[in-house]
Amino acid sequence: MSDVERDIDAAERALGLEPLRGEDREGRAAREAWDLRFAPLLDAVEPVAPPDGLLGRIEARIEALTDKDGTVVELARMRRRLRLWKGTAAAAASVAAALALWIAVPANDMPARYVAVVTSDADGTAGMIIEFDTGSGLATVIPVGLTAPEGRALEMWQLPNGAERPHSLGLLPDTPVERRTIQAGPGDVFAISFEPPGGSPTGQPTDPRFHGTIVQVE
């Protein structure tokens, strides 16, 4: 199927002729672009006073949602923080680009997005963001303002969910893009440690400084 045809498919979904369910990430981006192209049309729609008490009913549903499932709110907060951090990464674009690498994760029938935000144990600042896209089977690692102290190297670690000991994912590379294959899943913990040049001499992190786990965001 050509790019144009895919884009017309997206336009059909934006018009409401086809369901939005089952969109992959590219399909969603293309449809949202059409949403915005058509949006000026909605300006011509006459406003109609909504039923009395509607705001109260909506707020009651928000309360119910928050009480029953605080994680919904937590996820919204986390997505926001993630965006702020990505802004930080973009500000330090040269650093981020220099260290970006890809990790393959198992592709999945149900595309979902997961992130791991690996934060400093000392002050909670983000050190590294890993975005997992199970649709494409790729994860992007974005170091955020990470610099190793003089004479030390930064080493990445993974503690698979349920495992007792972490294993090394190697040193953060100096090369712009690097591909490595790993298995990853929900509940895995990622960490960064300070190590001697060349990596940990023991095979275990000697001075771990940053931790974070994978959370599903959509």
Partner: peptide, 24 residues
Amino acid sequence: MPTGATTTGVGATKPFDGPRFPID
């Protein structure tokens, strides 16, 4: 760069107590 000496987590013997997100 943080200089805290916290070592809780991956390398420690006690279980990791979850991610620590910053308080915003």
